[in-house]
Amino acid sequence: MKVALLVNGAVREVDVEPRKTLLDTLREDLSLTGAHAGCEHGVCGACTVLVDGAPVRSCLMFAVQADGLDITTIEGLASAPGELSVLQDSFCETHGLQCGFCTPGMILASHALLEANPAPTRADIAEAISGNICRCTGYGQIVEAVELAAERLRLANAPRAAAGGRP
């Protein structure tokens, strides 16, 4: 079946079997390998992508169901090759990862949180990433990364005076 996906801002047409998951389509047909297959039954969250802005498990969705929808993968977060978004950079700053396998899903889930809630509490963050399993970090530095990104984004968007007169 032919479907047209809006992936990271560009229309991508693919011809896929109706049973092919969105995850396999992104990885195999569009060479977007940042989304990972961890369990393929919707628990681990390593395959998380944003569909119309909301975190979705691409292993539980067929590509044909995504026809015409707006999909953001980890490859779509940075503004240019070699650049990082504020959130991605915050994960580097706190070392909110180790092996990196869950990281794209973790960052996209956190990205969706920060889009909706610029000042999340620790509990909000834990809730937002609770559908993404990380086996390496015990989540501590991931939570710190999201807290740091939220703070940076708030400061970046604040008027100069409100930012506390930082140099």
Binding site: L32, C92, G100
Partner: peptide, 21 residues
């Protein structure tokens, strides 16, 4: 100091075995 490996992973540019075709 930062962990240098992190950059490629946060960008989704790790190279795992499933990425090798």
């Amino acid at each position: 100091r930062r962990v240098r490996e992190d950059r490629r992973f946060v960008a989704g540019h790790g190279r795992y075995v499933a990425d090798i075709a």
